[in-house]
Amino acid sequence: MQADAPRDIPAPTTSPEPRTPAGRSGRTRTGPSLLARGAAHDPYRFYRMLREQYPLSYDAPLGAWLISRYDDVTAALTDPRFTGFPHDGAPRGGPAPLGLCHGSARCLPTDRYTVVTGTVPAGHAERVERTAYVLARRIARRPRADLVEEFCRWLPAGLGRDMNGAPQGKTAAPTGDALCVRDTALRETALASFLANLLDDPDLLAALRIEPALAGRAWTETLRRDPPVQVVLRRTVAEVTLSGGTLPARAPVACLIGAAARDPQRFAAPDVFDPFRPDQDRALTGPPGCPAVALGRLEAEQGVRALLDAMPRLRWAEGFRPAATGLLTRGPRSLLVRPG
């Protein structure tokens, strides 16, 4: 079934490019805009319409072509015919900023984006664990708390130093690793989505108390279903044919990560949060060499362990339901809970 168009999205018109693939005739339609009001309110409904009806369309207000299917987005992130945009200095075929990665040159290129296997130094791991337990114990004394304000915001910042060991606030220029690690906003957003998904599933929380290793799968599933970065910009350096048509060289392209992550052609029941899904290795989580990606996973694993140890009966506050907001980056802005 095709989704209805969100309100306030203009009817499609025609555009002279990109050309349709060889052997076909006609012109690719200009589709609905990512900047329309209805799109920001419920982007996943909007994404579904794009995948089904406009897999390659020009967004005039944005000034870029939209791609929404998993195979097309994966191609744009890894194919050497795409490069970084608006900063075209990225190596051709190198990693685009994705997930928790900001596109540091130190994030090694890979032929595909896959589940993170990287690690962080032991000293940083100990500091994350200590910070998580301090924050959790403070929250446990309260009848009601907001995990975004009192936990998610402070756990990434609690590292205190960048991955190279330089104190924050110094004037020395950050190295490649620090370019990704020092910006904690995306890790805060991803951690909030992770905790929201766990609190929505009391059975999963109970299982985590018995088997903490499940947190890693829940984290990867969160980055798939609720990616903190919803849109990645690229540019073609040569003509590229995708499922919906052919892009010319030098075309700006908006890769809709949130749409690709819920493509039913790649993931079974894509809207369902399922840490046990067998196709988890296809999630677009970011380049494995990025230190911010590895650190975000560590913060999620240590964070939920500290919260459950300090608050075994942690649950939503009465009447509260989390609501994600944002279009380019997206996540819940508050998580009201009862610690006791």
Score class of each variant (00 low, 15 high):
residue 187 R to M: 06
residue 187 R to S: 10
residue 203 D to N: 05
residue 224 R to M: 15
residue 226 D to F: 09
residue 191 L to D: 04
residue 195 L to Q: 07
residue 203 D to F: 03
residue 210 I to R: 15
residue 227 P to H: 04
residue 213 A to N: 07
residue 199 L to R: 02
residue 233 L to P: 02
residue 201 D to Y: 01
residue 205 L to A: 14
residue 197 N to W: 06
residue 200 D to F: 01
residue 190 A to M: 09
residue 190 A to Q: 07
residue 187 R to W: 11
residue 207 A to V: 02
residue 188 E to F: 00
residue 206 A to Y: 06
residue 186 L to P: 00
residue 219 W to V: 08
residue 232 V to E: 06
residue 195 L to F: 00
residue 187 R to L: 00
residue 190 A to V: 11
residue 191 L to S: 04
residue 195 L to A: 00
residue 232 V to N: 05
residue 186 L to G: 04
residue 194 F to K: 02
residue 188 E to M: 11
residue 219 W to G: 05
residue 225 R to V: 15
residue 188 E to A: 10
residue 232 V to F: 03
residue 222 T to E: 13
residue 206 A to L: 09
residue 189 T to I: 14
residue 201 D to E: 15
residue 222 T to W: 03
residue 195 L to V: 15
residue 209 R to H: 05
residue 220 T to R: 05
residue 216 G to R: 07
residue 196 A to D: 12
residue 195 L to D: 03
residue 198 L to Q: 04
residue 229 V to N: 05
residue 211 E to H: 14
residue 208 L to Y: 01
residue 218 A to Y: 00
residue 221 E to M: 13
residue 212 P to M: 07
residue 232 V to P: 05
residue 222 T to A: 10
residue 218 A to T: 02
residue 194 F to N: 03
residue 193 S to F: 05
residue 230 Q to D: 03
residue 230 Q to M: 14
residue 208 L to S: 01
residue 188 E to V: 15
residue 209 R to N: 03
residue 222 T to L: 05
residue 222 T to M: 13
residue 225 R to A: 14
